[in-house]
């Protein structure tokens, strides 16, 4: 409950932020997106497209997690980090397994080869 006798300016989540962190997070995210843009524009084969886009996306998200959100294993942030680690697989599972299940469904039920190839990921 609301016992707030302490000084909010000293709270670890307040102290944690620095201008450097925010500049870095923004620059890395922006650079990753520009990189991803050029990857996509060069229209590489599907597999390398997926690999390279996923890589740049991961860089951007990691930078944001570490520098924007300030996630780490310190006492102030540990539970946010743990809950993220527990939730992220579910995020990936719910999208990934769905795609996997439907790609096989489409492969078996849709006659149009264009559809099959577009879902064959």
């Amino acid at each position: 409950m609301g016992t707030h006798h302490y000084d909010p300016t000293q709270h670890p989540e307040v102290r944690q932020g620095t201008i450097l962190r925010y500049v870095l997070a923004t620059v890395i995210s922006a650079a990753a997106m520009v990189g991803a843009y050029y990857v996509a524009m060069s229209k590489p084969p599907l597999v390398s497209l997926i690999e390279e886009l996923a890589g740049t996306l991961l860089v951007a998200l990691l930078a944001q997690a570490a520098l924007y959100f300030g996630l780490d294993v310190s006492r102030a942030q540990i539970w946010k980090s743990v809950s993220l680690v527990l939730t992220l697989p579910l995020f990936i599972i719910s999208i990934g397994i769905t795609v996997w299940a439907f790609s096989s469904l489409y492969g078996r039920t849709m006659p149009d080869p264009a559809i099959m190839s577009s879902m064959a990921m």
């Binding site: 996997w100 299940a101 096989s104 469904l105 492969g107 078996r108």
Partner: peptide, 8 residues
């Protein structure tokens, strides 16, 4: 019974 493949 939806019609997924055997792997799935």
């Amino acid at each position: 019974t939806m019609g997924m493949g055997p792997d799935q």
